[in-house]
Simulated assay, not measured.
Amino acid sequence: MTERTDRVELALDLLAHLETDELTLADVVDRIETVTTDPSLTREILDAAEMRGVIDRDGARVRTRRGGTFVRFESQVVVREGEFECRRCGAGLSTGHFVRFDSGELGPFGSSCVRKVLGRE
Rank of each mutant, 00 (worst) to 15 (best):
E121I: 02
L10M: 09
S94A: 11
E83K: 02
T37H: 13
T20F: 07
G107R: 12
T37S: 09
G96K: 07
R4E: 01
I45R: 01
E22N: 07
D6Q: 09
M51V: 14
G110D: 07
G59A: 08
E22Y: 05
R80K: 10
A16C: 10
R52F: 15
R72S: 13
V28Q: 05
M1D: 01
L25D: 10
E33L: 03
I45C: 10
L41P: 03
K116D: 15
E121Y: 05
L93N: 05
F101V: 06
G119E: 03
E3W: 00
G110M: 07
R31N: 08
S94T: 09
L14T: 05
L23Q: 11
F84I: 13
D47L: 11
T5K: 15
L25H: 00
E74P: 03
L106Q: 11
G59K: 05
A60S: 15
F101D: 15
E3L: 11
A91E: 15
V78P: 04
T24M: 05
E33T: 01
S40N: 13
V35S: 05
V78F: 15
V29E: 07
S75Q: 14
R66K: 07
V54T: 08
T42V: 13
V28N: 02
V8L: 07
C86P: 09
C86V: 06
V35T: 09
P108D: 07
E121C: 10
A16Q: 13
R115G: 06
L18T: 08
E33F: 08
L46W: 00
A60I: 14
V28E: 02
F70Y: 15
R65P: 00
G107Y: 03
A91P: 09
F109T: 12
T5H: 13
T42Y: 00
F98R: 04
V71G: 07
T36C: 05
G119L: 04
E83S: 00
T2K: 11
G92L: 13
E3M: 14
F101Q: 06
C89G: 06
V28T: 08
L25K: 13
V8K: 01
A60Y: 11
S40P: 00
A16R: 12
D27P: 08
R80T: 04
A48N: 04
L10F: 07
R63V: 10
E74K: 07
E85W: 14
C113L: 02
G107E: 09
R120D: 11
T95H: 02
A60D: 02
A91W: 09
A11Q: 12
R87W: 09
R7Q: 15
E19K: 14
E19G: 02
F73Q: 03
E105T: 14
V71R: 05
D21T: 13
A48Y: 09
V114R: 04
K116P: 00
M51E: 14
E44A: 14
E121H: 11
P108N: 03
I45Q: 11
V54Y: 05
A91M: 04
L93H: 05
G104R: 01
L118F: 13
E105I: 12
D6R: 15
R31M: 02
E121L: 11
V28G: 01
E105F: 01
Q76R: 09
S94I: 06
S112H: 11
I32E: 07
E22I: 12
E44S: 10
